[in-house]
Design a protein around this nucleic acid. Sequence first.
DNA 1: ATACTATCTTTACACTGTCAATATTTATTT
DNA 2: AAATAAATATTGACAGTGTAAAGATAGTAT
Lengths: 210, 210
Amino acid sequence: MQQKPYHHGNLRNTLIEAGIALLNEQGQQHFSLRKVAAKCGVSHAAPYSHFENKEALMEAMKEHVTKQFVEVLEKTVQQYKNDIDIMFYLGNTYISFFIEHKQYFTFLYGKSGIQFDFTENGILQSNYTPCSIFKKAAFDFMEKIKYPPQKRLDTLIAMIALVHGITAMLTTQQIAYEGDYKNLLKNSIFANALFADAVTKQKQKRGEVL
Amino acid sequence: MQQKPYHHGNLRNTLIEAGIALLNEQGQQHFSLRKVAAKCGVSHAAPYSHFENKEALMEAMKEHVTKQFVEVLEKTVQQYKNDIDIMFYLGNTYISFFIEHKQYFTFLYGKSGIQFDFTENGILQSNYTPCSIFKKAAFDFMEKIKYPPQKRLDTLIAMIALVHGITAMLTTQQIAYEGDYKNLLKNSIFANALFADAVTKQKQKRGEVL
DNA sequence: ATACTATCTTTACACTGTCAATATTTATTT
DNA sequence: AAATAAATATTGACAGTGTAAAGATAGTAT
């Protein structure tokens, strides 16, 4: 019969994971530091050895979730060869991720969290943010279809805003949309709306119906 | 020297307005029932005579803010004659409203609040929700340019998602976008993206550059 | 005048984040 | 190996929170 050791050993990471678990179980409103500490079998003030305050723990949790998010997006990119497919499924993955974890959206995008950095340097520097993954896929595609260079950044922003907006509407609200949300992107909207002429031309060239 | 009367007289409305003021002053994180009560010069339990709990007061506040929001949108519609102008400026007003009151976005769209109801009945029934105002303007326009009827609802959703997404990115994040956000809609994105061919044709007809 | 109802205050309680003081273990230095 | 320092955890305290219960006050209806 082993006694619980005084030192936890891996409390920092355990707090982050327990925090995310609690968030998914009870939602952001009922999230509390003391509950997380209890979940880890540790006193209510123990977290202060690893995080300055509640906010700091939540920031670490956001970082963790964002990493998962980026990994899922990366996997989608590697899964498809066709340019247009990549763009479609990136959008779908973006939405699906937050549909599957309903608590994550307001958690990540409330107040601080994932940043949308569309400055020339910001979006180019790191290759492992949600935005930069979109940027690479979209710019590759736009390059291939000779999309007007001066329009590319604004179009990228619009694409992300569209996907982000759909996600927001689907997750933070009880959106009443009859049908599969995946059709929102597949039908006319995503590509046909933003790349209407370019996509149409490409389709005709290949003689296919997407 | 008049004594403060035992009964406030108009506490319900005062609580709502003081609550909104507190929200704007201190943000949602530092919002509390007791502070609102203090702001009204009333004991901390007085609000419970008018609202079941904190959540109920916040719902009433949301209702109040949403009304303001709808009024601003309505005013925009009445201000312009041209179809395309109405659509552009509706989008701009949407964004501006939340830029000017940074606290409102996460307040209204976190958890509950404004609903995006895109069911056939939902969006048709009431004419005084943010969505329905967009719907009227957009459908009028689409009717005029003979936009394919079966695409209209999805296109409307995309429009709102786009505007909503831009707003989300601009308000909940420290978005780094160099330039006026109004250009995001004016340039190519809003109309050119969603109505690319139709708008272009209309432009050419009138021989104007929007 | 009486009873009734709505509104407000007071008191109390459990829960929260955070701090200070203390205890325990591990790491570092001597 | 012993002494010291540093890291990590506990305990106890405090102010602030939402909310419930009981009582006080005032207006309204009978």
